[in-house]
């Protein structure tokens, strides 16, 4: 069982309470950012009058976790994808790899960290819900078990088929995410990437990485074999040359 957040964009009024609550919970300065930054891990965007909040999707099989060479990012059993600063060496592969373009970097600092939403993992550990869902005055964002939220989302789609695009964004995208979205307009119009595959991205590199033992084993035998055969050929050529009394050797 893992926790998730359901965002119903048809209910969001764009008040920004989740943004302030997020900043307060994470000890970040209240500022006028209009996009995600290292100081704003949750933002409300307006797309032709439709409000949609953007933050880490907390994928079920997260790309960022799979690409991090030092295991600084981790998917917890409870749902959140969390970041262990003391391991991070700052390669920023997570930023390149994230299909939703979420992780941010503290570019201004000499010793920067990666910043992204943690689904308030520290609050969850204390039995509290994330600051954003707690702050939402209209329950546009709700917190709960992923299974239950999926059922709730499907209910809403069934009860009001005309009011929604019949799709739960995050149900299957990149193998499923712990943040789910409902919308009345196509998700592409809200700035969501529409071309993300439905299978987990870590598989794309794992297919290749899992071949490494084969490459090493077959490669060693092959190279060793070629070395032995070409050496032997030169020795035979030399010996034959010597028998005929005219020593000559070819280079193989």
């Amino acid at each position: 069982m893992s926790k998730a957040i359901l965002v119903d964009t048809t209910r969001c009024i764009g008040c920004g309470a989740c943004v302030s609550a997020c900043k307060e919970a994470n000890g970040l300065p209240q500022n006028e950012d209009t996009t995600l930054t290292a100081e704003t891990l949750n933002i409300v965007e307006s797309h032709s009058g439709v409000f949609v909040r953007k933050f880490c999707m907390h994928c079920q099989d997260p790309t960022c976790v799979s690409v991090c060479p030092v295991g600084a990012l981790r998917k917890t059993a409870a749902g959140p994808v969390i970041y262990e600063e003391s391991r991070c060496m700052g390669c920023r592969y997570c930023m390149i790899a994230c299909p939703f373009g979420i992780p941010r970097y503290e570019w201004k600092l000499v010793l920067p960290k990666v910043k992204k939403c943690t689904m308030c993992a520290p609050r969850q550990a204390k039995g509290l819900q994330p600051a954003c869902t707690e702050a939402c005055p209209v329950q546009a964002s709700i917190f709960g078990e992923r299974n239950e939220l999926l059922r709730e989302a499907e209910n809403r789609l069934r009860q009001n088929p005309a009011g929604y695009v019949q799709h739960i964004y995050g149900k299957d995208e990149v193998g499923g995410t712990s943040v789910l979205y409902l919308s009345a307009v196509p998700f592409e119009a809200l700035g969501f990437p529409a071309n993300v595959p439905h299978d987990p991205l870590p598989m794309y590199t794992y297919r290749v990485l899992s071949e490494i033992p084969n490459v090493v084993a077959v490669g060693t035998v092959l190279l060793g074999g070629i070395w032995w055969i070409t050496k032997r050929r030169a020795e035979v050529a030399y010996a034959e040359g010597e028998e005929k009394g005219t020593p000559k050797a070819s280079d193989g």
Partner: peptide
């Protein structure tokens, strides 16, 4: 690297699922 003095981290902190680790 953002934190170049940690360049040795992949030696002790492993993640074989990462291409960057390779």
């Amino acid at each position: 690297l953002g934190r170049p003095y940690r360049i040795w981290h992949p030696m002790v902190m492993w993640n074989p699922r990462s291409v960057m680790f390779e």
